[in-house]
Amino acid sequence: KMTERFDCHYCKESLFGKKYILREESPYCVKCYESLYSNTCEECKKPIGCDCKDLSYKDRHWHETCFHCFQCKNSLVDKPFAAKEEHLLCTECYSNEYSSKCNECKKTIMPGTRKMEYKGNSWHETCFICHRCQQPIGTKSFIPKDNQNFCVPCYEKQFAMQCVQCKKAITTGGVTYREQPWHKECFVCTGCKKQLSGQRFTSRDEFAYCLSCFCNLYAKKCAGCTNPISGLGGTKYISFEERQWHNDCFNCKKCSLSLVGRGFLTERDDILCPECGKDI
């Protein structure tokens, strides 16, 4: 009775009584498997055999005994390490050679630990603190001043101007009126409460008003058109006997001739040019 053969998939030698490795359901003798599929050690350049541990990092492989620090040669198996220019280094050697120093405590910032960086300087996360409250800033916003860093609440308390209206800190923008600071959204018309920032406005009794509210509340009315005369922005007007007119409205009552710069006569409340008023 014929016995079914059990041969190496590559060299075809019998595998009965021999050690073999299965790959994709095909058996290989140890020699063929290692020559075909074993990884090459980065350190000694020899194949990493089936009876050895294969340690890998970023598609590179080492024997367990070859996986050591490039400088001190101590084993890196089950230990933290760092890579620099294709070389593996233990944390101590890496720190001594390459790690940055904390700007606050001047100690090495070890690989694998969080660090904060700002303008070319580095800090341990626990050393990067607000100068005022001494609390770690972490990933929160901060404001530098005079080579010191402040969290935003502390900076506002110590340095920021405070709005005259709401008494809160002004961190961006703002408006100055009568040498006092305001938030843009707080600087509003006393009458209608609309924001005045970027708008023309005037004041009365130290209160700010938009032109519309000021005219409605305080401006005299034109004796001609009855609209308010603001007198702002170079608006020209005529005043006579406690009455005022817009320049464009100071016309003869009868013929509508402009009386600006001309002589005129009055009849009761009417203003007349000399020609229309000659019979008075």
Rank of each mutant, 00 (worst) to 15 (best):
F6G: 09
H9N: 15
H9R: 15
Y10W: 12
Y10N: 12
C11W: 02
C11T: 04
E13L: 14
L15C: 06
K18R: 13
K19I: 03
R23G: 10
E24T: 11
E25W: 01
S26F: 09
P27K: 03
Y28M: 05
V30W: 01
V30N: 09
Y33A: 07
E34S: 12
S35C: 14
N39D: 01
N39P: 06
N39M: 12
G49Y: 07
C52I: 05
D54A: 00
D59S: 05
R60Y: 07
R60M: 08
E64H: 13
H68D: 14
Q71C: 14
K73E: 13
K73H: 09
N74R: 15
L76V: 11
L76P: 00
V77W: 03
D78C: 11
P80R: 01
H87I: 12
L88S: 08
L89H: 02
T91R: 04
Y94R: 02
Y94M: 02
Y94I: 05
N96H: 10
E97D: 11
E97P: 12
N103L: 10
C105N: 04
K106R: 11
K107P: 03
T108C: 11
T108M: 13
M110D: 00
M110F: 13
P111Y: 01
T113I: 10
T113G: 06
R114F: 05
M116T: 03
M116I: 12
K119L: 14
K119C: 11
S122T: 03
S122R: 11
H124A: 04
T126V: 14
T126P: 09
C127I: 10
C127Q: 04
I129A: 08
G138Y: 06
G138M: 03
K140I: 10
F142S: 06
I143N: 03
P144E: 07
N147V: 03
N147D: 14
N149I: 13
F150Y: 08
Y155V: 06
Q165F: 11
A169Y: 01
T172F: 14
Q180L: 12
Q180T: 14
W182Q: 01
H183P: 03
C186N: 07
G191F: 08
G191D: 02
K193Y: 04
K193W: 01
S197G: 11
T202R: 07
S203M: 06
R204I: 08
E206F: 07
A208Y: 04
Y209M: 01
C210N: 04
L211R: 07
C215Y: 06
N216A: 07
L217T: 12
L217E: 15
A223Q: 02
T226L: 14
I229Y: 01
I229S: 05
G231H: 01
T235F: 13
Y237F: 08
I238R: 01
I238E: 06
S239P: 00
E241H: 13
Q244D: 15
W245V: 05
D248E: 15
C252I: 04
C252Y: 05
K254F: 14
L257S: 13
G261Y: 06
F264Y: 10
L265D: 01
D269K: 02
D270Q: 12
D270I: 10
C273V: 08
C276D: 11
G277Y: 00
D279N: 02
